[in-house]
Write a protein that binds this DNA or RNA. Structure first.
Lengths: 348, 348
DNA sequence: TTGAAAGCGTTACCAC
DNA sequence: GTGGTAACGCTTTCAA
């Protein structure tokens, strides 16, 4: 199956036909632009028959409503800005869906931006998103540069941080404690007799949620009197299946000196699991493997991966419900802890 | 780890401080708004010292540039509208990244919308996206309602369809033939002695790319003189890992009557692979399993999944390059076939 | 190098 | 139930 390319000139550039506006529709129907405007928002004040004629004329003329002008005039963009670490995150997809469904009902559009796990990139992104006059800002995570905090503080804008529960939230927050969730895993491993734990995650630095999970694992092990957790660096964030697999393959049989491999996320755990299988290890007899986040892969793999469910979907829904409440001017929760729940699989 | 909620009143609603505009900055510095405007686009025509003072005043006042006003005044939104079937698609994520990197360089922002594999939803989405005055429209797939086609035709807007190569494209297209790519798989299976093929994919209807893959498999098998391909319905699109696994688990040992299971995508293939392993089948000895798209899971699973690489990342990059060319007024390819390439794994 | 005026398409506000 | 007027913040255009 060969690849191919066909070329042609840039396009049949007919003269750029001037935009059809409400004024044009109004003239065609013989009413004022105001009436057209009202007709388009189903304003009851418009005569039903007039409205029908307006609709018809608009269709005939190919009129398309201009949100940009409305956003400008009303100072309401209809946008909710959302930052996330990476679009390539199956788990965020669940959160996104929860958000999307509810926002659609409030006629809001999501303006997405990826930070690539870097707070500096986040700052730039927030700066850019704010120029679009979003009506709310939803950020994944609770770590930001001071400049980001200042930018946001300078505006009277609802802010929701999700997936974390920051000590000093910028506004509202919907999330859970990554450290506590990870403690559930470590407690389970200790209870089932595992002692020599390794933690597999991204390099220190960029990914703050990953860092909290690592710290949570280390602290929980210490509290339970286990030997110190050995940290295995799978490279810079984002780390996924392939990084988990490659890192374990590089360690080879040396991985046998641990009896549990605690992974920063389910994809990493799946990569590690596959690598262990290739190395001829029996999971969980030779080594236990745990994930984080209850991604789809954890529920499907053979064996299924022990993980924690952090309610990715619910986070999105709660954020959306908060936004709905805020837009409606209602009282709204400041902080929602969605909790976390251990999900036992066959890898531990 | 319990969940909890904290309530509070809606916010410290101080009076909505009026927006800081260029006019305010101009007054503070003692220049005209025009000079401020010029200073903000690094217009060389502005005295360097004046520009510095303007920047400083802007920061002090907390001025934030208003893209909405600019979009309105210039009739250029800075948006590229992108429709995709589902945000929860690891493969699209690659395409997205290719697109995002290049668009960032041209200072364009992506406006994403998900069609959930339904052309009616796509129509609604396009209608909504067009009100934002996007400077280009990128759509995943080549099947649309007539109304969608009309909407687009009415505007002088660059359109790119990707992931398909439609017979009658709306504008430009970057993609590959799903049927031909699937034929690569079937030919490989035939060459390795497989004869009794089953195809596992979504129900007929919504997912046109899936339908083309199914048709491609059926046609290729017929051409090669294989028995008719048995179609196994994994439910409505989108189908993913869990659907593939659940469907095979439901069939149970009956799956042994096939010697190859051709799956509509890698996630579905991975689900099927896990289910077969749970059923005690040896893959590939008892049955071959193939995927589509070279998702990460196919490269990591044990065994790795035989698939076709359709250049997900490259599609995004090519689309972005097209857009750059179009925005720069250059001649640009009409149609790019990125081809497809068989990737052998351990499942066949 | 800087400024003044006009206007992008819509809707808030008031009048009828 | 409908219309006139003004204004949202910016940049194009022309002039100085």
């Amino acid at each position: 199956m060969g690849a191919s390319i066909t070329m042609s000139r840039s396009g049949t550039s007919s003269l750029p036909s001037p935009r059809v506006t409400m004024r044009d529709v109004a003239e065609a129907v013989g009413v004022s632009p105001m009436t057209v405007s009202r007709a388009f928002k189903d304003d009851q004040a418009v005569n039903a028959e007039t409205r029908a004629r307006i609709r018809q004329a608009a269709n005939k003329l190919g009129y398309v409503y201009d949100s940009t002008a409305t956003a400008f005039r009303t100072q309401k963009s209809g946008f909710v800005a959302v930052t996330l670490p990476s679009i390539n995150n199956a788990n965020f997809a669940e959160t996104y869906r929860g958000l999307a469904v509810a926002l659609e009902e409030s006629n809001m559009q999501m303006l997405l931006g990826a930070t690539n796990y870097r707070v500096e990139k986040e700052e730039e992104l927030v700066r850019q998103l704010l120029t679009r006059n979003p009506e709310a800002l939803v950020m994944t995570g609770g770590h930001h540069t001071q400049a980001t905090r200042d930018l946001i503080a300078a505006r009277d804008l609802p802010v929701i941080e999700m997936w974390d529960l920051p000590g000093e939230p910028l506004g509202r927050a919907v999330g859970f404690s990554n450290a506590e969730a990870m403690a559930l895993i470590v407690e389970h491993l200790a209870e089932t007799g595992r002692r020599k734990l390794a933690f597999l995650g991204a390099s220190e630095g960029a990914d703050s949620r990953g860092a909290e999970r690592r710290a949570g694992a280390v602290a929980a092990a210490a509290k339970l009197g286990l030997p110190e957790v050995v940290l295995i660096d799978a490279g810079p964030a984002p780390v996924s299946m392939r990084h988990g697999a490659a890192r374990i393959e590089r360690i080879g049989q040396g991985i046998r000196k641990f009896d549990a491999l605690v992974c920063v996320s389910d994809p990493v755990a799946f990569g590690a699991l596959s690598a262990c299988q290739r190395l001829g290890l029996n999971v969980p007899e030779d080594i236990a493997i745990t994930g984080f986040g209850q991604f789809e892969v954890a529920m499907v793999s053979e064996p299924r991966i022990t993980t924690v469910d952090v309610g990715a979907r619910r986070i999105g829904e709660e954020v959306a419900a908060m936004l709905d409440g805020l837009f409606a001017g209602e009282d709204v929760a400041d902080r929602i802890d969605v909790g976390a729940r251990l999900v036992l699989g066959g890898t531990s």
